[in-house]
Design a binder for these strands. Structure first.
Lengths: 233, 233
DNA sequence: AAAAAACTATGCTATTCAGCATACAAAATT
DNA sequence: AATTTTGTATGCTGAATAGCATAGTTTTTT
């Protein structure tokens, strides 16, 4: 089940906050129960209404968390990059998942049973605090997103979506090409609009020399203008 | 600072989950630092961008949590009833409040310093779990609300808002009159629409014999129909 | 490499909802 | 009790955005 080499790599690159929190014994417990999974592009990791079982840790790739709404329209709720954790909320709330997750691109993930996570939280105060922080930050973000998506106009919503992409995935080495290549439909699903409108609005941004577009490659030419539209649009 | 009598009442009526979690010493610590505040109708308890300092416990009355958006339009995020807790998220996230809270009607609240709450969490695993559960449930609710408010049409959103009122505050003794009396504007702010549209849509519900309206008194005549509109509208 | 499928771009039309105005009613204030 | 303020109801108009169609392009699959 455990690919030792992969795990050792993970442990070597410090596994962010969470790893340094654990005692030696807890690290072993995690190591012995950590399973690496590979997901293809667009493959579902878990789906809405599934029973939560694992804490997922994104090691490589990109993941979207989304919810299917009316008429099959999808709303992207959050984006994840290495090394971030998800899948724990529903387990903690003791309810089935209310959203789904899928790999945006070929991705490598680690899964640990939430039973083991729970067991460690019970004996490790700092891990409890880690999740309290994590949940608190996400809840603030979700509340803010709610108002942004319901009250901003299309230009503002799309501009905001692009700034979210910048903040989450950053730029290629040229310092201006977005380091994520999304379909227009996903861009639309991130900004609560139809694909048509995402395409149209992207075009107006190009005309206004705020971005340039080459297929799915988006270059940010005027980031201040973009953030201004995001804020006031 | 402490009104002994009020606190004893609170302790007598079991203070829900949270109280039974604490040890005798912790109960004393809370009791010694618990301050009762009375708020008038529409009085702000805390405002967006304030620094969080207290855990608030609603003892009597009704409270709304909301966020001011573009053009002064307010979005109501959550409603609270006795005995529920709020104000802790921003403190845990280590950031200023992203939303405000106000009393809907004359309300009595208790405030405890978050420093003390933090101190108790540090020594009481069950209290840590209480907040993990609480945050997890709210985060799921917020994500679901996001999709409902962005994707449902006006009728669906208003119907949903009314079901939220039913679920939060229930009925008067007649079993059909909503036990909360909101301005149309608040109803609109709960369902992401203008006041005009809230009024209009309420009228159509009356015409369809789903509810009756007498000023701010709303009677639910056909709850299944209401829930159906909420679900599919 | 060819074929199929999925995605992108753009125009046109329809629908939903917001904005504003007016009239009336109810509460709050003086 | 009179006056002011605030809230409710309804109609009309315009703006924002969704829906659909078509053509061309890119990506994926075979």
């Amino acid at each position: 089940m455990i690919k030792k080499s992969a795990l050792e790599n993970i442990i070597k690159e410090d596994l962010a906050e969470i790893w340094s929190i654990l005692t030696i014994e807890e690290k072993h417990l995690v190591a012995d129960n950590f399973v690496i999974h590979n997901f293809k592009k667009n493959q579902i990791i878990y789906a809405e209404n599934d029973e939560p079982e694992y804490l997922w840790c994104l090691l490589k790739g990109k993941v979207k968390m989304f919810k299917d709404g009316i008429g099959g329209r999808q709303q992207i709720l959050r984006l994840y990059r290495p090394i971030q954790y998800f899948g724990f909320r529903a387990y903690f709330a003791n309810e089935p998942y209310v959203s789904s997750t899928a790999a945006f691109e070929p991705s490598q993930l680690g899964a640990i049973s939430m039973k083991i996570v729970t067991q460690i939280i019970d004996q490790n105060r700092d891990l409890a605090w880690f999740f309290i922080h994590e949940l608190s930050k996400h809840l603030g973000g979700s509340d803010t997103k709610l108002v942004n998506l319901t009250q901003k106009h299309i230009r503002g919503r799309l501009a905001e979506a692009i700034t979210i992409l910048i903040d989450n995935y950053g730029f290629e080495d040229d310092g201006e090409t977005l380091k994520i290549y999304m379909a227009r439909e996903d861009l639309a699903n991130l900004s609560n609009m139809t694909t048509s409108n995402a395409i149209r609005t992207l075009s107006t941004f190009v005309n206004e020399r705020i971005i340039t577009v080459d297929g799915r490659r988006i270059k940010i030419v005027n980031e201040p203008a973009l953030r201004k539209i995001s804020k006031f649009g």
